[in-house]
């Protein structure tokens, strides 16, 4: 891909890395929170639901600000992380964190809908056959919600790839460090006559997003067909 400049290329690779980690790290808590919201009735459930959805309705710059306050080296969480030698602020890890948090509601939503579509009576049946809670989740619910997990992950990945506001507020716009695709496009547009350079990155952005969508649709169809038994 010689038509990409080294700095373009850097932004693409960084974006994939940031979005990949963001998706990977938000999957386990996403699964847990989705299950809790779908199946358990506990005090503070609406509060948890609200918190999860907060990044979706807050201005991204506010989310970025809150992350900055919390994770800066002198922030509450940032100081604790610094003690174990992890810095998040102004690094790609911070970009992944911001992207993960922004994508989290989409992930939880998709998985939660999938869990709610599985009849809890199936888990009851599994328990009467000797399966513990964990075993019945792993052998019954998990395979049945696989399409939902996949859909949630891909949407989260696409959202993470496109995250802009929280990222630039939290970890700034450092080429090679935190400058993901959207940030690179933004930077190029700040340079007079930079529209042509930006266009290349825009094409890549669109291609990656469309590709992710198509792959997820195809995988979800295959999994759904396998579960329904029409393979």
């Amino acid at each position: 891909m010689s038509w990409l400049s080294p700095s373009d290329w850097q932004a693409v690779v960084l974006s994939l890395k940031v979005a990949g980690w963001a998706t990977l790290l938000s999957l386990p808590p996403g699964l847990f929170v989705a299950y809790a919201l779908a199946r358990w009735r506990f005090p503070g459930r609406s509060l948890v639901n609200g918190l999860v959805h907060l990044p979706l309705i807050l201005p991204p710059v506010v989310t970025g600000y809150l992350l900055l306050i919390g994770f800066a080296p002198n922030g509450v969480i940032g100081a604790a992380l610094a003690k174990i030698g992890v810095t998040v602020a102004f690094s790609w890890r911070g970009a992944a964190l911001a992207a993960g948090i922004m994508a989290f509601p989409l992930m939880v939503r998709a998985i939660r809908l999938a869990i709610e579509a599985v009849d809890p009576k199936l888990e009851q049946a599994a328990s009467t056959l000797g399966a513990s809670r964990i075993a019945s989740f792993a052998t019954i619910t998990l395979p049945l919600i696989l399409p939902g997990i996949l859909a949630g992950s891909i949407t989260a990945f696409a959202k993470a790839m496109g995250e802009f506001g929280a990222t630039i507020t939290f970890v700034s716009n450092i080429p090679g460090q935190t400058q993901t695709l959207p940030l690179a496009i933004y930077s190029q547009l700040q340079v007079p006559g930079g529209e042509a350079d930006a266009a290349r990155l825009v094409v890549i952005s669109v291609t990656l997003a469309l590709g992710a969508l198509l792959v997820s649709e195809w995988l979800a169809r295959r999994i759904a067909a396998r579960i329904a038994g029409h393979n």
Binding site: A125, S127, T128, L129, I227, A228, G229
Partner: peptide, 28 residues
């Protein structure tokens, strides 16, 4: 707990596991 009781339960609505074959259901 239910899974420690070893009580076979035949439900009115069968409740077979839709993603498993009949054989895997039987051997579950």
């Amino acid at each position: 707990r239910p899974h420690k009781r070893r009580i076979g339960y035949v439900f009115q609505d069968a409740r077979l596991f839709p993603h498993l074959s009949v054989k895997s259901n039987l051997l579950y």
